[in-house]
């Protein structure tokens, strides 16, 4: 298992729920839990992944997510069982959609 931590600037999100969960820790899949964070203009992400050595790809995928979405003011925790970058992007969008009440 590898543990990774990231922090990216992002436009503030408008939460509709106190927390949102998306996905399952199954083969090739991951779960994402979004909760309110301490900094309104930053998205703080912690990842636990079964696949070692993919830190730079995680960084690129999450940076792209933070740049494209208003995901600021959030704390995002991820448990990963080998999801591909496309699945990670998809789940991040779904989880944020649930957190903000369908608005991305």
């Amino acid at each position: 298992m590898e543990k990774l931590e990231f922090r990216f600037p992002a436009q503030p999100a408008t939460p509709a729920a106190g927390a949102a969960l998306c996905g399952v820790v199954g083969s090739g899949n991951l779960e994402i839990l979004i909760r309110p964070g301490d900094e309104a203009d930053a998205c703080v992400v912690s990842v636990k992944t079964s696949a070692r050595g993919f830190g730079r790809i995680w960084e690129a995928v999450i940076a792209e997510f933070a740049a494209r979405h208003a995901a600021g003011g959030t704390r995002i925790a991820i448990n990963d069982m080998g999801a591909t970058p496309a699945v990670v992007s998809l789940r991040l969008g779904q989880a944020l959609g649930e957190y903000t009440g369908g608005v991305q």
Partner: peptide, 9 residues
């Protein structure tokens, strides 16, 4: 060293 699930499944 295995990732868990928040709700433990």
């Amino acid at each position: 060293d295995i990732p868990g699930a928040f709700d433990d499944g």
